[in-house]
Design a protein around this nucleic acid. Structure first.
Lengths: 143, 143
DNA sequence: CAAGATTGAGCCGTCAATCTTA
DNA sequence: TAAGATTGACGGCTCAATCTTG
């Protein structure tokens, strides 16, 4: 139906604006210790990985940047001492990315403060039940 | 409670990923006629404005870019012939931005195709009722 | 040739400073 | 002094091409 198209567009616009608005607030918060939100995203992904770290291509699934962008992101973070590269024993093309101790420390500190800020921003507008609904609806879009 | 913090963070992550994923798909679609999604956002905002157009500061409320970014965006679009600037009769500091005929034509063509694509992407995952729920939840976050 | 990753060129956005008018 | 808008410097991302290994 026509009105279904309209609702779909309104839902997309609301989703788009909500993400942009909250992301701006979070980025402006004083919790980042010199890392960008995207750099934190890399640290966060690595924090959930095993001791061998992740390949670039695996990081790509988590961070939503192009391959070229990830290459530069990783190079920058290596330069900053947050991560380190090691050769992949089984595949000469790939390299494994691991956090350094410094990187792990940053991830913990930033993660704590950022997580609190996220909770504050989200619960300000929505209660627990609504948060679950939102999570479910958004997950369906990604799935 | 602690679990409420967790749900809030999961909801934010889901929201973030959903927006990024859908935005990528939409940006990659072959519907843009040479304008970027943001440039289209400007045309769309102007399409809903009166014959006197909008000021930069009014556009800023719709497009989510900095003042400096908007200045460059508008300059580019003026160069491309999509919009034009006129002096604001009542305020010598401001300028009014209006669409040209070419801009209006692009807005219509792109708007039609983009709108269809948005509807396709959103209804693929959610039915009408869920779209309304998503719209409502996201609107609350924008406040 | 395909897959993992890097590099060069260019675009576009932000920050900070500046200019002009209210 | 503040508000509207622009400009210079710079950072970071994307696209396309390239290099290396499977």
């Amino acid at each position: 139906v026509a009105s279904r198209t309209r609702i779909a567009n309104e839902a997309w616009e609301a989703l788009f604006r909500a993400q942009a608005t909250v992301a701006r607030e979070l980025a402006a918060a004083d919790v980042w210790d010199g890392v960008s939100p995207r750099e934190y995203g890399v640290l966060y992904a690595l924090s959930g990985a095993g001791p061998d770290g992740l390949r670039m291509s695996e990081l790509l699934a988590d961070v939503l940047v192009t391959q070229a962008g990830m290459s530069r992101l990783v190079a920058r973070m290596e330069g900053a001492g947050l991560i380190e590269r090691a050769e992949d024993p089984g595949d000469g093309r790939a390299s494994r990315i691991r956090m350094t101790e410094a990187g792990r420390a940053v991830q913990r500190r930033v993660g704590l403060r950022h997580g609190r800020h996220v909770a504050e921003a989200m619960t300000r507008a929505l209660d627990a039940d609504e948060l679950r609904q939102l999570r479910a609806l958004c997950s369906r879009l990604t799935g």
